[in-house]
Design a protein around this nucleic acid. Structure first.
Lengths: 165, 165
DNA sequence: AAATTTAGTTGCTTAAAGAAACTAATTGGT
DNA sequence: ACCAATTAGTTTCTTTAAGCAACTAAATTT
């Protein structure tokens, strides 16, 4: 009865969810993107207990999303830095952020917001587009299997559960 | 020792994470966006046990993300439909999806992808922009407190944990 | 050099995840 | 119309993980 791991599911969303689909992980990433690096700072900002925080940070490090770096050379105390892989979660975090502003606060009542660094302008919604830059609306897209998908697509994902992490 | 609820945290991301920051919720939403409506279809596609699925669907219904609708008038069997609130999670889901394609599969090996419905073109990355439409890169943005934020911003979020859901 | 802060580890308790077995409506076949 | 199968759950039980508290060893401050 081990906990279901989505790491091997043949779906990008499932695999992403396996790594960051968790409340604490999302909050850690929020703070990391805001520049937080130290264990104690994460702790006070999140309010999570140390064992939980330790475990989540280790997971994110194993996943290559965070990097452990000595605070100064020669010393074993570490800071947690975002890797490129971690940085590129901004879009997802920001999308969730904007959704949260729209649906979990009254209009204009969000206590903290994201804005353009240079002019302070508010952000608009993330724009869907094709690789060539043609803008799309949310009804213009569809999920389709690729050539890389053998029989699995039309099978049940349940079969995957045989292979636990 | 109740589980920490993020529902009252003064942060849009925390509140969003409270509602959808969970593996099963994300997978349910993925399938809902792909057009799945029936309990049994969710079950076979997710491979979750029925009690878990029941609980998650109920949560999403309570949160106003899904709607329960009788399959036909006069009958008590229901289908789960996305509300507008649910639909507007597309950006977040798609951002996670794209991150998953980039970082959890080899190039071009994702078995299922999202594309433009009309031409089948691949999607490009979600584009950050200001309300006026000026494109921004991920380093051009910053998190800032608003006027709606009283003293709380510089306090620890830990204090919030006193108020459990 | 002593006191404090930082970054954890260990042990314990409660809550949630997961499996399996069961039930009541609804639907399909003959 | 009747019986079998499917659908949408509920209930019970076991295992895993969340959360708290107390402790420890480096590093930093005074």
């Amino acid at each position: 009865m081990t906990r279901t791991s989505l790491a091997r599911y043949p779906c990008p969303l499932a695999r992403a969810a396996d790594l960051v689909g968790d409340k604490w992980a999302l909050l850690i990433l929020r703070d990391a993107l805001a520049g937080v690096r130290r264990f104690s700072d994460f702790k006070t900002r999140l309010g999570a207990s140390t064992n939980i925080l330790t475990e989540r940070l280790n997971h994110l490090v194993e996943a290559g999303i965070l990097h452990r770096k000595p605070v100064r050379p020669g010393v074993q105390r570490v800071e947690y830095h975002l890797s490129e892989k971690g940085m590129s979660l901004v879009h997802a975090l920001l999308a969730l952020w904007q959704w949260g502003e729209r649906w979990t606060f009254e209009e204009g009542k969000s206590p903290v917001t994201v804005q353009a660094r240079d002019t302070g302008e508010k952000l608009g919604p993330l724009q869907l587009q094709t690789v060539s830059g043609r803008p799309l609306s949310i009804t213009d897209i569809e999920m389709v299997p690729t050539e890389a998908a053998p029989a699995i697509t039309h099978q049940s994902y349940a079969a995957l559960k045989a292979q636990k992490a």
